[in-house]
Simulated scan of single mutants.
Amino acid sequence: MQMPVNEFKKALASDTTQWGCWAGFATGYAAEIIAGTGFDWLLIDGEHAPNTVPTILAQLQAVMPYQSAPVVRCVNQDPALIKQLLDIGAQTLMVPMVESADQAAALVRATRYPPHGVRGVGGGLVRATRWDGVDDYLSKAHESLCLIVQVESPKGVESAEAIANTEGVDAVFIGPADLSVGMGHPGNPGHPEVQQAIETVIKVAKAAGKPVGILAPLEEDARRYEALGCHFIAVGIDISLLRQSAMTTVARYKKQATYNASSTY
């Protein structure tokens, strides 16, 4: 059996913007619904959604037949958790709050087998190898993996150039909400200082040859970030989409304000 192709990593090498959606319901059923709607990629959120390794596995299995490529976000930078996520078949990982090149390099090592890293060998126990069905998995695994590091703090912005130039880092993702809080402008990622920081990260990441992504539920924001050079942009959050649709529907029949999505997440 050949190594499964990482369609998301393959798409990042193209010139086409990849439009994504946050999957926060933590169930395979909901993830499969979103996967069938046409988004290029889905972020299975292990940081803020109530996910565990088994629920992430269920979502990876649910979306596998669809064109939407799954990206799994870790709750933290724990190498043991990263090992588990890779073993259940996650090929693209997004890791939050990376603030230095040293942290980025440690994450690269967590995704590599010795002598290039510290990932433990699961062999026939794990889905990633298709239970020992993938030919020469140990020597080829890194080729199909995509590591996305999140820059979402003032310290991360300061180190963005070094982070982006770290060998083994495949892409950089900007977190506007955490960045705005860290810069003293909570709930206001549109503040000029925050926007300047975002533009700085985009510029240095692109100079390093690394694709840049961002979360932007408002179309005006998404289009602006696309024009600035962001290559993969999450433009929806499944929970917000449900709430917005439900409130819009009930507002037709009751006198209440409709819900407006924001980009403060």
Rank of each mutant, 00 (worst) to 15 (best):
R130P: 11
A177R: 00
D178H: 03
P70M: 13
A110E: 13
A160L: 08
P50V: 03
T16D: 10
T166L: 01
S100I: 06
V108E: 07
E226L: 07
V204T: 13
R112I: 03
R223I: 14
V71K: 10
A164S: 12
D15K: 15
V169T: 08
T111L: 07
V201C: 10
G209S: 06
R127D: 08
L179N: 02
K155M: 12
G24M: 01
A101P: 03
L43H: 09
I44Q: 08
V149W: 11
V204P: 04
I34Y: 13
S100A: 11
T200L: 04
P54F: 08
G28N: 06
I198L: 12
D45F: 05
Q196H: 05
T129V: 11
A251M: 09
I239G: 05
T111Y: 07
A207P: 00
I237V: 14
A171E: 09
V181G: 03
V201P: 04
A101E: 14
P217R: 01
E32T: 01
E226N: 14
V149L: 14
C146Y: 07
L93P: 12
D40M: 13
E158W: 12
P176V: 03
F25K: 02
G209F: 10
I202A: 08
F173I: 05
R109G: 09
G209V: 12
H142S: 13
R252P: 00
I44L: 15
E99R: 15
Q67E: 15
A171W: 01
A58P: 00
D238C: 08
P79G: 09
A141K: 08
S153Y: 05
R252D: 13
A216R: 04
E199C: 02
I198F: 01
P217Y: 01
V212W: 01
E167N: 07
G36S: 07
D78K: 11
Y137S: 07
D221E: 09
T27C: 10
R223Y: 06
Q256C: 10
E143Q: 15
D132I: 11
A141P: 00
Q61T: 08
I44R: 05
A246P: 00
A141H: 08
L241D: 02
M3H: 13
P211V: 03
K9G: 15
K140T: 15
S100F: 05
K203S: 15
G120R: 05
D135C: 14
G24F: 00
V201A: 08
L145W: 07
A11Y: 08
V235A: 01
V204M: 03
E99I: 06
L179K: 04
W41Y: 10
P79H: 13
K9S: 08
Q61H: 10
Y66D: 12
Y113N: 00
V108N: 04
T55V: 10
A251T: 02
A160Y: 12
R252V: 11
P65M: 11
G209K: 04
V121W: 05
Y113Q: 05
L228A: 14
A13L: 08
L215I: 14
V235C: 01
P79T: 10
R223F: 02
